[in-house]
C-alpha cells in the first residue's frame, strides 16, 4: 500500500512540477499513472522512492512506513524500475543480479531459483554472463525488472516499464503484474499509453502539469469525459499516441 499526502515539488523556484498531489494505492491493486510528457509522473515516482525529497509539507508512506522519517524501512517494501535502464553497464548481468540479491539479503538457494526462473521467463538467461553494455535497450529493461522482482517486494513501482519491450515480454510483464496484484500486493506504474491502462489497471490516475486531474476506474473516466471537455482533450492526446 502506498499513500501520498499533499506532496509538491519544484525543481526551480516558482515552477511546480508536482503540485499538492494526494493519492492512495491499495493492496491488491494495479494503478496506472497516466499523463503526457513532462506531466510529473517520474517526479512523483522519484519522490515515493526517496530519490527526490518533496518540498516540505506532505508525506509519503509505503506500507505505513514514511519514506521521510523511516526511509530504510520504507525502501525495503518496494521495488523500483527507473525510466532509464542504463545502470552499471560494466557489470555482467549475473553480477548485477547477485549484487541486488546481496543488498536485499537473499540466501544462496533463494537467489538461484529466483534468478533462473525470472531470467528464463524473460529470455535473458543466456546472456547473463555478458556485460550489460552489450545488451539492447529492452534487455537492459528486462534485467532491471528481474533485479527488482528478486526479493518479491510488497509494492512495485515502475516508470514506463513497457517502453522498449517486445510484445511477448510486454505481455509477460503484464501477466506478472496481474499475478502480483492477485497475491494482495500493489503495483504502480506510469505510462503514456491509455490502452495499456484500460486493459490492465484497476484504477488510473491522470496527471497533467503536476496536478492530478482524475482518479478512478476506466469506466468512471469515460463517464467523466462526457461532462468535462478539457479532460476529453487530454484523453485524445493520450490515445493519439502510437503504441
Amino acid at each position: 500500500m502506498i499513500k501520498i499526502e499533499n506532496i509538491s515539488k519544484s525543481y526551480v523556484k516558482g515552477k511546480k512540477s508536482v503540485d499538492n498531489l494526494s493519492l492512495e494505492i491499495k493492496d491488491g491493486e494495479i494503478f496506472g499513472f497516466l499523463g503526457p510528457n513532462g506531466a510529473g509522473k517520474s517526479t512523483t515516482l522519484k519522490m515515493i522512492t526517496g530519490i527526490l525529497n518533496p518540498d516540505s509539507g506532505g508525506n509519503i508512506w509505503v506500507d505505513g512506513k514514511s519514506i521521510l522519517t523511516e526511509p530504510l524501512e520504507a525502501k525495503k517494501r518496494f521495488g523500483f524500475v527507473p525510466d532509464n535502464p542504463d545502470m552499471f553497464l560494466k557489470l555482467r548481468g549475473i553480477e548485477y543480479l547477485n549484487f541486488l540479491a546481496d543488498i536485499y539479503e537473499l540466501s544462496s538457494a533463494d537467489r538461484k531459483n529466483r534468478i533462473e526462473e525470472l531470467t528464463k521467463k524473460f529470455e535473458i538467461y543466456d546472456v547473463l554472463q555478458n556485460q550489460m553494455q552489450s545488451y539492447s535497450h529492452g534487455m537492459r529493461q528486462k534485467i532491471v525488472i528481474c533485479g527488482v522482482l528478486l526479493n518479491n517486494p510488497q509494492n512495485w513501482l515502475l516508470d514506463e516499464p513497457m517502453t522498449g519491450l517486445d510484445p511477448k515480454s510486454s505481455f509477460d510483464l503484464k501477466e506478472m503484474m496481474r499475478v502480483h496484484a492477485k497475491e494482495g500486493k500493489s503495483v504502480l506504474f506510469s505510462t503514456h499509453v491509455l490502452e495499456v491502462a484500460e486493459k490492465l489497471c484497476d484504477r488510473i490516475g491522470i496527471i497533467n502539469k503536476g496536478k492530478l486531474i482524475f482518479v478512478g476506474s476506466y469506466t468512471e473516466m469515460k463517464e467523466k469525459f462526457k461532462e468535462n471537455a478539457s479532460l476529453e482533450e487530454l484523453f485524445l492526446e493520450l490515445t493519439d499516441e502510437d503504441k
Binding site: F99, I103, S108, R111, S134
Partner: peptide, 27 residues
C-alpha cells in the same frame, strides 16, 4: 562495445551470498 559470446553459468559458486559491504565494494 562488449562481447556477446554466449557463456554458460557455471556452478553454484556464482550464487554465493555476500554481506552488503563486501558486495558493494566489489561492485
Amino acid at each position: 562495445g562488449g562481447s556477446t559470446k554466449k557463456k554458460k553459468i557455471d556452478g553454484q559458486k556464482i550464487y554465493c551470498k555476500h554481506i552488503v559491504a563486501v558486495s558493494y565494494v566489489k561492485k
